[in-house]
């Protein structure tokens, strides 16, 4: 029994022990990362790029809903009164301060992702005290600039990347 305690043997075993542990940890990491990463959006989802929308048919005061990346996008043709009203709001009245100018390309067109920034329901257009958007799920109220004004949502409706291809067409994404 006592004869097994020599210096050389433990050194050799120590080496194997540390080498095994090191390779094991690297191997486990290399296996875990793909296992986690596979759950992220796949290549075809990422590639589901842009949509073009013809906006010539949207009358003043009307909101069109289109689908982009599985989400509803609101394209709102705002009235002059709405534009004037949202531009007159002082910044200190806003929970998530942003000027209307910073949220639109052209004053009469508001383009936002139609997903409530609270827990993801689709708000109703031309509804609520500001005649902007109202979310029926937990009562968040947005103005015609898509800015959060009341209720539990923490942030303004998100503006997706888009550009005007022509006066009658926008490209989202």
């Amino acid at each position: 029994m006592a004869a097994t305690t020599t210096l050389e043997e433990p050194t050799r075993r120590d080496f194997l022990y540390i080498a095994t542990a090191a390779v094991g940890i690297v191997g486990a990491g290399a296996a875990v990362w793909p296992l986690i990463s596979q759950m992220s959006p796949d290549a075809s989802t990422l590639a589901a790029g842009s949509v073009e929308v013809d906006i010539s048919g949207i009358a003043v005061g009307q909101i069109l809903t289109v689908k982009w990346r599985g989400k509803p996008i609101f394209v709102s043709h705002r009235t002059p009164e709405e534009i004037a009203a949202v531009r007159a709001v002082p910044m200190n009245e806003l929970k998530d301060p942003a000027t209307d100018q910073s949220r639109v390309e052209k004053p009469e067109w508001l383009v936002v992702i139609g997903i409530c920034t609270h827990l993801g329901c689709v708000p109703l257009g031309n509804e609520g005290p500001y005649h902007g958007f109202f979310c029926p799920c937990h009562g968040s109220v947005y103005d015609p600039s898509g800015r959060i004004r009341q209720g539990p949502a923490p942030a303004n409706l998100v503006v997706p990347p888009y550009k005007f291809v022509s006066d009658a067409k926008i490209s989202i994404g």
Partner: peptide, 23 residues
């Protein structure tokens, strides 16, 4: 699942990961 987007900083990334997409 959107509840997880309440987590500061990484919330949105976690939600996208749970969904495997943007919704």
């Amino acid at each position: 699942t959107s509840l997880f987007s309440a987590i500061p900083v990484v919330g949105d990334a976690i939600t996208t990961w749970l969904w495997g997409g943007y919704s």
